[in-house]
Structure formats: structure tokens, C-alpha cells
Design a protein around this nucleic acid. Structure first.
Lengths: 196, 196, 196, 196
DNA sequence: TCATAAGCGAGACGGTACGTCGTGTCTTACG
DNA sequence: CGTAAGACACGACGTACCGTCTCGCTTATGA
């Protein structure tokens, strides 16, 4: 049901690439997408612009690469034995991780219109999280905690979706309590609801 | 409980301003944020660049204004008599409206870091929607459909938040069925859940 | 031989026009031609731009008008009774006057390429001076001081031409001694030379 | 007595700079100073505006540079053996050269008020010519053609000054005959005059 | 006495050049 | 060969000025 194989491995980045991909999100956070310049990244890493362009053909590509690199599978599949605990662990991981990458996600969203591959990257990013939830739910079904029929394929991503959303909107980052409430008052009631 | 008074009135835009604020999101959708040029907007509206810059000191400001203008209270308070119908009407309005403004929202997110007033505008945008949901829920409580205790102030905005989120991520716009499922399988189970 | 009738009368400027034509050369001197703006002139005279444009259709025209107004026949025909004295009086008048109007002349020269009427105005300006010299020389011929054959129509304007030239080149304005030397060592030797 | 060492060498312009400095006076002549745009110069030389601005910080500076470059010592010291012939050769060189550069000189005069280095350049331009005349006169003194006492330091530049002046005033460019008359009827009589 | 018009101050406007700066390409010289 | 340095073409940015225009307000006459 879930497809954990969609989680791509980290790119084979050399030490030099890591410098660029580390400096990029930092500068992005400092100055915003428009304020970020390739010259800045080059200066920051004592590199030449050509060295960066050899690797990524445009600024957007660099930002996307930084985004993908930063979001690669940093969320692990929890196996606590209960659905609620699994969801809480997962939600907390997502929350923590998203809080770091909110500026990059914001920047990346802007570029979606022009960069089709970026759309794919973003989809993959969320597909990862959905896949993890799928695995968690599958395990719960196997344990008999919930009914497989209660799982709506399309709505799996309410948990990561809403948490990320809260990070994107300014001054509303989710707290740990938000995660708990979301699991207890929204996700679990949905999964354990009486059939409609 | 809800605060409908936070819904700000439309800015006092003259006919000329409306032209700019209409052309901007259209071009934004066509070409993306970086692809949008002030010269384009000027040409499109047969105006001079100076005329635009007199109103908004930068491209970012114009886009922000277009966002704010376009998102001003276009969602009306439904009064169908039942919670489910109210939520469906509201969800469909949000879905429709968000589908129009997704490119603008994406563009605008980039600017959050640099434009404090934009943060406020975005918050207000969602505050509006939360206020509407609050009113809908209040009415349901008054009718005895749900228990006031089931309402979590912080999670009110799962409905608009998740719908907008789906619009932001490429190729996953919510369908009408998504709205129905969200209401029936997530929102209502949450509101009618047994106390935890 | 000379044509004193070419000396045009002053324009029938009203008090308002005089303000503009006075402010213009002053600002021209302060800021140069490019630095002079119609807005400046308007602000300086507490007038509206339209009020200026109603009178002169362009900035160049205003400058030309100021030039013409400022150079209108301020040089009088001397009648001292001797050629040398006449030339000295004339040379001193030219020197004094040109020193005031050098910035305007410089500005006006720039515009010659684009404003044909300006060429005419400049020619008239120098024709005035030539006409005066012509009258002085005619009187000298009549008194028998010089031979009519010694007068070269084309070279009459060495006196005003060279004096103005010295004002145009920076830091080389002619002194009173320059005028005396020019008359004694150049103009008079030329006029009293033995036929070649 | 004369100072030929003041004749500065040509700037160390690369091939690219020469293109700009060649196109500039041509366009200047075509369109006048205000009509000249940096975009035009860039288009004409298939260059980018930035490439021009990297070298000269403003349009005025470019024009000044073109003036200086174009007026660098293009007049050679004549050595015909007689004063009259030397002066005629020199006068003709000046006339020819000035006819080419009259539009640039006109444009450049406007900028004098704002560009001190331009004043120096203009002075140097005429100093060159004065130095050449000084050398010619020195040679004539050495040959015994004229008396050293007849040379007035301040008036040396009547020849170049008057010729340039005639180019600046519209529709009065000096002809070859003007040069001959100027030498025969003004300069030589002055140099061979009886002491006053 | 009032209205009707003409001139004016104020300033928005379309257009266009300015001078700056960032992108992405390219060349040169070094290691 | 990959790199640092940096020039370059391109083109958008945001500013400023020109010359046109509209809007009220004043003033000056004529009914």
C-alpha cells in the first residue's frame, strides 16, 4: 500500500557540493530567495560562479538541490508498537524538521511555476512522509487497531500537510502540544470513526 | 468566540489600482514571480512604470497588495442550518478561492521573511477563514449539534489550512470530493468524537 | 555695410516671464544644462510646470529664450571719436557681458544640433556684435583712420569671437589687459597693415 | 618657451574602448548630446550597457573621454621653413580637425561646470595647439623672420581659438580661405607690426 | 452681484533614459 | 583538467525628468 521505495537516496555529493548546499539554505534564510545571489554563494564558499553553474544550471536548481538535500529521509519510520505513539513520534519529527526548512520550502514554492522538476521534488518530499504514515497505518491495521476501510488514500497527508502549513504561515509554528492535539483530536478520531 | 470583526474592508482602491491588482495575479500565474516584470504590468494596463511605483515601492509590494486585495473576505458565512452543509459550503468556497490565488500565495510566501506587513496580511487571511469556521461551529453548538468542548481553538484551521496546502503542492489540488471527504472523515469525526 | 537693423527688440515679456528668464540662467549656472529641470524652475518661481510650458514648448526653448533675453542689445554703439577708443569700449562691453552669460552660451551650444531656431538665434547674437564693429569701422573709414580695403568681411568678428571663446574655455577668461592687447596688437595692426 | 611636453600620450585604450570612443562622437554628431543614449552606444558596438558603465560612470564621462581621445595630438608640428607656410599648415590642420570634433566640443562645453577634469582636458587641448604655435614662432624668431618682442603670450591662441569658435557657431565654419585670410591679414600683421 | 471664463498651482500620468545589479556564459591563467 | 577570477551580453530593477493633462481655486470682467 505504501511505497517506501520512493524515498530517494542522498545524492553522491562531494565535499565541495556539501559546502554549496549548506551555504545556500543559510543565505536563503538570511536574505530571502530574491536576495540570494549566486555571487553570494560563490563568495561565501570561496568558489567561482562557474564552479557552481557547472553543477546546477540555474539558481533555482541550486535552491531545489539544497531543499532536496536538506529534506532527504531525515524522518525515520517509528515502531513503537501503538498507533498513537507512532503518530506522535512521526509528527514530532516532521515538526522539528519542517521548522528548519520552512524558509527553503517557501523559496521553493515560488519557483514551482517555472521549474517542473521542482514540482516532482516537492511531491516526492511529501510522498516520503505519506509513505511513512502509510507504513504506520498498515502496521496499525495489522495489529487490529484500526479498520483498513477507515484509511482514505487522499487524506493521509493531513498530518504532515497541516504541520508544514503551520510553519509556512508566519508566527504560527506548531508546538509539541499542537502535534499531540492534532493526533488525538483529529487524526485518531478520523481513523477510529464509525463508518459513515 | 469567533471574531468576525477582524475581516478588514477592501482597501480604498481607485479604478486604476484595481487594474494593476487584477493584472498582477494573472501575469503571476502565467509567468511565475521571477518572470513577472513591472514593465509587463505597465504594458498590460497601458500605464507607466512610474505610475505603478508611485503606489507600491517595489515589485514585491505590488504582489503583496494584489494578494491582500484578492483575498479580502471573498468567503461568505454560510447559513444552511446544519453543520455538515455549512462546512461543505465553506470548504467549497475556500477551495475555489484558493485555486485562483495559489500562485499569488506561493509568490507571497517568499517575501514573508522581508515584509512584516505581509506576515500580518497572511495571518489575517487565515484569521478570516478561522473566524468563519468559528461562527459556523458556534451556530452548531447553539443548535446542539456538537459539544463546545470538542472545539480546539488551535486546530480550527485544519479545513482551510489543509485545502490551501493542497493547492500549494503541485499537481495535488483538492477536488470537490476531497472537500467532502475532509469534512465527513476528518472534521466531523473530530468534532463529534468522544471526549478523550 | 553694417546692418544695425538686425538688432532685435526685447520680447514683450510680462513680469511673470521675467521671473522665469531670470531663474533659468541662474539655475543653469548652478547645475549645468542637464542638471536644470523644469520642475526646478517651477519650484524656484512658485509656478506650475504648465505655466512654463504654456510659454515655451520645451526646456531647450526656455533656455534659448533666456539666452536671447539676456543678450539682447546690451552692447551699445560707442562713439568716442577714435577707432582705438571705440574698439576698447566695445571690447570691454563684450567682455563684461560675455562673462555673465558664458554658462548660458555653453548650454545653448549643446542644443544647436537639435534646435535649428537656436542656430539662428546664436547667429543673430553674433551678427549684432559684428554689426556694431562694422559701424565702428565705417566711422573710422569716414574719419580717414583706416582704409576700407583693409576690412575683411569675414574676419570682423575676431574681436567678439575670440573674447567669447576665452570665456568658454575654463579658467581662461579675458582680462581688461587682454582686451587692450587684442585691440593694440591684433585688431589695429590688421586694420592698418600695408596692403598684401 | 613653448612646452611641447604638455602633449599627453593617448590613453591606454584597448580595442574595445576604441569602439566606444569611436561610436560616441559619431552618434553625438547624429543626434546631439541629449539624443545620445548609452543604449544606443551599446547597441552600436554590440556591447552591454554594463560594459560601458564599467569604464565610464556616466554618459557625460563617456563623452568627455571621447573628446579627450579624439583630440589627442592629432595636429603635427609643421616645418616648412617659413613662418607663413608653417602657420597655414597648422591652421589647416586645426580647421580640419576642429570640423570633425565640433559636435563633441559643443557637447562637452555643457559639462564643464560639473566636470573639473574636463576643464583640464579642454585647457590641455588648447595648450597643445598653443605649444605648436609657440614652436612655430620660436623657429621664426630663430630664423630672424620676426621679433621675439612681438609675441604676446596671452594671444598666441587667436589662430586656434578663432577657428574653433567659428566651428561652434552654426553655419559659419571657416573655409580654407578663412585660414589664409586669418594668417595674412591678422596673425602676420600682428607679428610683424611696428612696436607700439 | 454674481457667473462665467481664463489663468494658475498642484500634481498624476505615459513615456523613456538613466545607472545599478543579478544571471548565466565565457575566457584566461594557475596548479 | 578543474578551478578562481572576473569580463561580458542580456535584461529587469527602481529613479528621475520631460511634456501632457486634469482638477479645483482664484481672479477679473460683463450682465
Amino acid at each position: 500500500m505504501s511505497d517506501l521505495s520512493t524515498i530517494r537516496p542522498s545524492g553522491p555529493w562531494s565535499g565541495r557540493e556539501v559546502e554549496f548546499l549548506t551555504a545556500t539554505p543559510r543565505l536563503l534564510e538570511e536574505r530571502g530567495y530574491d536576495g540570494l545571489t549566486i555571487d553570494d554563494v560563490a563568495a561565501e564558499t570561496k568558489a567561482s560562479k562557474a564552479t557552481i553553474y557547472r553543477r546546477w544550471p540555474s539558481k533555482a536548481d541550486l535552491v531545489v538541490a539544497a531543499f532536496i538535500e536538506g529534506t532527504q529521509s531525515q524522518v525515520k519510520l517509528p515502531q513503537t508498537g501503538t498507533l498513537r505513539e507512532d503518530l506522535l513520534v512521526l509528527g514530532r519529527q516532521i515538526r522539528t524538521h519542517a521548522s528548519q526548512y520552512a524558509p527553503v520550502v517557501r523559496a521553493v514554492l515560488t519557483e514551482i511555476a517555472r521549474t517542473p522538476e521542482l514540482g516532482a521534488a516537492l511531491q516526492a518530499f511529501f510522498a516520503d512522509r505519506r509513505a511513512l504514515i502509510g507504513a504506520v497505518l498498515d502496521a496499525a491495521v495489522a495489529r487490529g487497531e484500526i479498520d483498513a476501510a477507515a484509511i482514505n488514500d487522499e487524506l493521509w497527508d493531513v498530518l504532515p500537510g497541516y504541520l508544514v502549513f503551520r510553519h509556512l504561515i508566519p508566527r504560527t509554528p506548531p508546538s509539541d502540544q499542537t502535534v499531540i492535539d492534532l493526533v488525538d483530536q483529529v487524526i485518531l478520531p478520523s481513523l477510529t470513526r464509525r463508518a459513515v
